[in-house]
Write a protein that binds this DNA or RNA. Structure first.
Length: 937
DNA sequence: GCAAGGTC
């Protein structure tokens, strides 16, 4: 070839690899370094020749994935859509903000290059990152020729061979990762939103955390990890200790004491044990019946990979896996150990093991051992065993630089470096040799045995001080002893065995469980599920779903493998996997009562307002500018108590919705007439709740509020109906009137000022807290009696009722809320089939409606609106004006400025800074009136 | 405010 010099852009997965590749290829001759747009990703330049083609080489890097997957903007907000929509909502790949400078570097360099050579790690993720780099570079230079360099170690021969034998990038590998990302995102986001919105505000979880923003996340890796912990915990709980008896005998001689164990082990029958014991006592002469000698070997460990490093650091030093990886990364960055994220536990044949040992000869603690290893006369050397894993990307973790400790090291650095070095030296050492003796005795026909071990040659145990070889032959667990809680090392083993996470992410999943308050770790590094973690797992388990088991991940992994081998297409796997998971999600939602029941085992139901289920309808104030679907109505926070013959307590509005007209204080509950007492603060909220959470809080001192027919002539989009307020005089400053005709559209200075001074209803400390609802056996038990709510038969739950199943599936598969045949209406919120009922309130007596039977759902629709096509909505759309307003005002997007501004102004009054606003009392922009030092109290 | 996967 030869001829004109071409520019070749080389991109590695991380800066260190770019540097190594550049150093090796340039042979350190004429290597220039310059800055890129990103601080960490330098650009190396030198001349090189690829198969006779003179090249100007530019080597730079990314830092892992360049792109992330996310839902389209319209689905990003938690209340923007039904979580079930997340199984088909559009997603896009984009370059996140912190990677944009890397993208700029790639774009700038790619424009002037002819070739792009991809030096990403040779695994599936690496291949996927390669395509991300291609996407960015090809977008600015369509003529780029794309090449992939395959290499498995950063050593001269590999790198030179790789660049002289460039191949094509592997689309199948990248596709497998695309599918994995999309499935993870859709499952994770849908279940996380569902769980969080369903449970967080429904239960008093202050015992778990004070964090009101608690997220109850679900993830295909984190949940099975939690499952391991819960499962072991349940094993321990279900263990019933049983008494047993055993007989021991011992023999004291000049050489010491030998203890013999009864070969029957444990006897659970007391009488039998006593009889045998008496026989032995009556005839106590012991006869030695057997003496056996064995030579035993104890082999050194396999070469060190990530999981073993984490497990051993946990066992030997009580370091968490997360901490271990952090310290290991620092040691790697400083060049003392090799890359710490590796599955490989086999040394590549070309590894120069001797050189690594030679480097350690000068160490005060293990230097002499290293010298013995190198002395061929000592016979201590042994070629390392293979653990059978090879990720073909990185070698086992090994020391790469000699050190007797550095000034900046903390104790963890010392320990981890020592572990890596001693482990390496152990790997190339002979096994320990022991002589084992087993002695058997006969006393009155009963057999006893004892064993002892003498270590003949310690060999690797001399350097691997973390392991010992005790003389005891008693197994660590005996019958009847309960298993211990899972240790971090156990947990890592479980995850590794079942393929949960990767070596680089396992510790993240463990940490996530602690961060989410799903589990705790005690001082012995053992994990216990929290009430929250246990109840979530219990809930899904009660549903019959193994979502907390590793099976789902295993299936996904098989699919990914099939895609990466070309056996299945990405589209095929995505379609089938998401279809199944969506069905699972919908079923889980139908069965959400199981989650509630499990939570009720541990938590009190919350009467905290602000929850998803606790709004009672009011009057329409304006159309919601956020969701553009529903109206905003004046509501009173529904802390509602009711009285009936023998019970006083809080009723959840979901029970009330069909029975109680919000304007009245009487109604019926389960056919019993009740007296309702409303005692909450005022707010204006969206009827689309819980899908839409747009809410405007009103001043705390409001004692009465009513929507008028007055329309504000300032606020747009209209109409915005004004509200007649009455304030509690003692709670407002003297210069304000008790009566006020106000507007929530953002124009009303008086309201804004009162909120700044007095706060809003949402921030009032005690909101009519009544007696706590019974948690497991009060009226709530009507959903738990075991008989189906549709056919009244026992033996199946309502969600599995044969009379309803086909209807509900039909409705769901068409993505509809209802159809007009018989009683087949499904709840738009949770999909539960709804029964036809009759209203018994003053305004609507005799009118038929459908409502969701689930006690935690607000779905409600009048039968006549179903039949005339106006569709379902949440509670309260029966005011007449609602549906008219909905129909008349159009459903177009955009123009939500007026309401948005109003919401912002009111939000500012609750303490969140909004630019441009100042304290109303003193004018200082650094605080609001609520926190003003000049305000006085 | 959701996942898991790279890596800084």
């Amino acid at each position: 070839m030869g001829g004109r010099t071409i520019n070749v852009l080389n991109v590695a997965e991380k800066p260190s690899v770019a540097k190594s590749v550049a150093t090796i290829l340039s042979r350190n001759q004429g290597l220039r370094i310059r800055e890129g747009r990103s601080r960490y990703n330098k650009i190396f330049e030198f001349s090189y020749s690829i198969r006779g083609q003179p090249c100007h080489m530019l080597v730079t890097s990314v830092t892992g994935h360049l792109m992330e997957l996310e839902f389209d903007e319209r689905y990003r907000k938690w209340h923007s859509c039904d979580p079930a929509e997340l199984y088909h909502a559009p997603v896009r790949k984009y370059v996140p903000e912190d990677k944009k400078d890397i993208r700029r570097t790639l774009e700038e360099e790619a424009r002037r290059c002819q070739w792009l050579v991809l030096w990403l790690d040779c695994d599936r993720e690496g291949e996927n990152i390669a395509f991300e780099v291609i996407e960015v570079c090809a977008a600015v230079n369509r003529h780029l020729i794309l090449k992939r360099a395959r290499f498995s170690a950063l050593i001269d021969r590999e790198i030179h061979e790789a660049v002289q034998n460039l191949v094509e990038p592997n689309q199948w590998f990248a596709d497998a990762v695309d599918a994995r990302q999309e499935i993870d995102l859709r499952i994770g986001a849908s279940f996380t939103r569902f769980q969080t919105m369903l449970l967080r505000d429904a239960f008093a979880m202050d015992s778990v955390t004070d964090d009101k923003n608690l997220v109850l996340s679900y993830g295909p890796c984190q949940f099975p990890t939690l499952g391991f912990i819960v499962e072991r915990y349940w094993e321990i709980q279900s263990h019933e200790p049983e008494e047993f008896w055993t007989i021991n005998c011992s023999h004291r001689s000049d050489e010491g004491l030998a203890t013999f164990n009864w070969m029957r082990g444990n006897m659970f029958d007391y009488t039998s044990a006593v009889i045998i014991y008496e026989m032995c006592v009556e005839e106590p002469t012991a006869t030695v019946t057997n003496v056996r000698h064995h030579e035993r070997l104890k082999y050194p460990p396999h070469p060190l990979n990530t999981i073993e490093l984490e497990k051993r650091a946990s066992r030997y030093f009580r370091m968490s896996s997360e901490q271990t990886m952090k310290v290991a990364e620092e040691l790697y960055q400083a060049g003392f150990i090799s890359y710490p994220r590796t599955e490989t536990d086999t040394f590549p044949s070309r590894t120069d093991l001797h050189t690594i040992v030679e480097e350690q000869q000068g160490h005060p603690d293990w230097g002499s051992y290293a010298q013995r290893l190198l002395d061929s006369g000592a016979g201590l050397w042994r070629n390392p065993s293979s653990g059978g894993h090879d990720d073909k990307a990185h070698p086992p973790i090994q020391p790469t630089k000699f050190s007797t400790g550095e000034s900046g090291w903390r104790e963890e650095h010392w320990k981890l470096y020592e572990l890596v070095v001693r482990h390496f030296l152990a790997c190339v050492s002979q096994p320990a040799v022991g002589a084992e003796t087993i002695i058997e005795l006969d006393i009155a026909g009963e057999l006893f045995s004892a064993s002892g071990r003498v270590i003949l040659a310690k060999n690797y145990l001399d350097v691997y001080r973390f392991e010992s070889w005790g003389g005891s032959m008693i197994p660590p667990y005996v019958v009847g002893q309960q298993p211990p809680l899972l240790s971090e090392a156990d947990l890592l083993s479980c995850m590794d065995k079942e393929g949960i996470g990767t070596d680089a992410t396992m510790h993240d999943h463990i940490k996530k469980l602690l961060d989410r308050f799903y589990a705790t770790k005690d001082t012995n590094m053992r994990f216990t599920p929290t009430n929250l973690g246990e109840s979530l797992v219990m809930g899904y388990d009660d549903m019959g779903y193994k979502l907390w088991k590793p099976y789902l991940r295993a299936v996904m992994e098989r699919d990914m493998k099939a895609v990466s081998e070309g056996a299945k297409s990405k589209a095929e796997v995505l379609a089938s996997s998401l279809q199944q998971m969506k069905a699972c999600f919908l079923d889980a939602r139908l069965n959400k009562v199981k989650l509630f029941e499990a939570m009720e085992v541990f938590f009190e139901r919350s009467n905290r307002s602000g929850g998803d289920e606790q709004h009672v309808a009011g009057e329409v104030v304006r159309r919601c500018g956020l969701c553009q679907e529903e109206d905003m109505v004046l509501k009173r926070k529904p802390v509602i108590s009711f009285t009936r013959s023998n019970y006083v307590g809080i009723v959840y509005p979901s029970f009330l919705k069909c029975y109680c007209n919000p304007a009245e204080e009487t109604g019926s509950f389960n056919g019993i007439s009740c007296h309702f007492k409303k005692d909450g603060n005022f707010m204006v909220g969206c009827l689309g709740f819980p899908q839409c959470r747009n809410a405007i809080w009103l001043p705390g001192p409001v004692s009465e509020a009513a929507v008028t027919t007055n329309i504000c002539n300032i606020c747009t989009p209209g109409p915005v109906y004004k509200i007649q307020f009455k304030f509690r005089l003692l709670e407002i400053p003297p210069n304000y009137n008790a009566n006020h005709l106000g507007c929530i559209g953002g124009c009303d200075e008086t309201l804004i000022q009162l909120i700044e001074i007095c706060g809003t209803g949402s921030r009032m400390p005690a909101r009519g807290r009544g007696p706590t609802a019974p948690s497991s056996n009060g009226y709530q038990s009507n959903t738990r009696q075991g008989s189906c709510i549709y056919c009244q038969e026992t033996g199946h739950s309502s969600s599995g009722c044969p009379s309803q199943l086909s209807v509900s599936r039909n409705a769901r598969s068409r993505g509809m809320n209802h159809h007009n045949e018989g009683t087949s209406v499904s709840c738009s919120t949770c999909g539960t089939p709804c029964a036809l009922r009759t209203a018994n309130t003053a305004n609507n007596r005799g009118r038929k409606f459908y409502s969701c039977p689930s006690r935690d759902c607000n779905f409600f629709v009048w039968e006549d609106s179903v039949n005339n096509g106006t569709g379902g909505s949440s509670l309260g759309s029966n005011t007449g004006r609602t549906s008219n307003a909905s129909r008349n005002s159009g459903r177009g997007r955009g123009n939500r400025g007026g309401l948005h501004a109003a919401a912002t102004a009111f939000v500012s009054a609750t303490g969140d800074p909004v630019s441009g606003r100042r304290c109303f009392v003193c004018g200082d922009p650094s605080h609001f009136a609520n926190g003003c030092p000049n305000r006085g109290t």
